[in-house]
């Protein structure tokens, strides 16, 4: 039976995490459908139809779906769920907001943050901040999963030519209303899709000092990340947080600056290919996972690093 994926997008473009989810889906079944629920999201539909491996795109284009309100989108998904044995979404804040609702409405379990597909009913997911890896088997009639993008390669964004089906259902709750949004604007790559990330922690001292990281980020085409302590202290906004309860990243190169390496931070970045740590405390736990550790004061090392790149 076909797999249904809930596409992640902002009404303008399809988000990369969707492509990783497509790869997970194709490991379950070759017939992969994408649901694009949004408002005036025609360009997203175009992009979705071209994703390699996607055979059909379901389109629900209505103001009720503009902000991905879980109340509306979950019911829409349940209405189209018939005939699907698997319903997947990227494990983003949107997917995590909506899919548990879908599972509860279908009276089935939901598996979060799947990093590996063993078979159509057996999946692998991290628990305890990634300090244990669980393999779980489900006999539910419908398997509802969120997929961690770092566990799967991205499917090709072109090469497909999916058919389209327009959905006419309009589900609009009158008990949930979008008020406003404050989205980070940045020319840098998205944290979860970047090949290189440079993150700062409490050791950065203040928000201004994050400018020190920008020079390196510019040279390496890197995204900027942060530890919880740096976000809590107000140095940088919440969308930069990497970790158990922030974003999970696995770039080719992760540079941790002034970050001690608490397990909750490691949970979000320890699958990076190469890890560099710059910290003045040689006992900092971050050095246990770093491929290259530099014991130094970041205020000396970071400017020097920028010059040497």
């Amino acid at each position: 039976m076909s797999v249904l994926i809930i596409a992640e997008h902002d009404n303008k473009s399809l988000k990369p995490a969707t492509l990783n989810t497509v790869t997970a889906a194709t490991q379950i079944n070759a017939d992969v459908h994408l649901l694009v629920a949004g408002f005036e999201c025609q360009t997203v539909v175009e992009q979705a139809s071209q994703v390699a491996g996607v055979t059909k795109v379901l389109v629900a284009d209505n103001a009720a779906y503009e902000h991905q309100l879980a109340e509306n989108v979950s019911k829409l998904i349940v209405e189209v769920a018939d005939g699907y044995e698997h319903i997947l979404a990227p494990a983003t804040t949107t997917g995590k907001n909506t899919l548990p609702r879908v599972a509860a409405l279908l009276n089935v379990a939901q598996l979060s943050d799947v990093i590996k597909v063993e078979s159509a009913d057996t999946f692998v997911r991290p628990i305890y901040a990634g300090n244990a890896i669980a393999t779980v088997k489900t006999t539910d009639a419908v398997k509802v999963l969120t997929v961690r993008a770092t566990g799967f390669d991205a499917a090709a964004s072109t090469g497909g030519s999916a058919e389209r089906q327009v959905l006419s259902q309009v589900i609009a709750s009158d008990r949930s209303r979008f008020v406003k949004e404050q989205l980070a604007e940045s020319d840098r790559p998205e944290l979860t899709a970047a090949n290189v990330i440079i993150s700062g922690g409490r050791g950065m001292g203040n928000g201004d000092n994050f400018k020190l990281l920008e020079g390196i980020a510019d040279k390496l085409g890197a995204a900027i990340g942060a530890s919880r302590a740096a976000v809590d202290a107000g140095f940088v906004p919440n969308d930069l947080q990497v970790g158990q309860t922030g974003k999970t990243v696995a770039p080719d190169l992760y540079i941790a600056v002034g970050i001690s390496g608490a397990i909750q931070h490691l949970a979000g970045m320890k699958d990076s290919k190469v890890i560099v740590a710059i910290n003045k405390d040689e006992e900092a736990p971050i050095f246990q996972v770093a491929d290259y550790g530099l014991v130094a004061d970041l205020f000396d090392a970071v400017p020097e690093l920028e010059k040497s790149l």
């Binding site: 379990a109 244990a132 393999t135 489900t138 040689e282 050095f287 770093a290 491929d291 550790g293």
Partner: peptide
């Protein structure tokens, strides 16, 4: 629940790295 645990294993360990002496 219809979900059962097949196994719980430790995560793969990263091979230890090195300390470098300079930028």
């Amino acid at each position: 629940s219809n979900v059962s645990i097949v196994s719980v294993t430790p995560p793969p360990q990263r091979a230890g790295g090195i300390k470098v002496g300079s930028v």
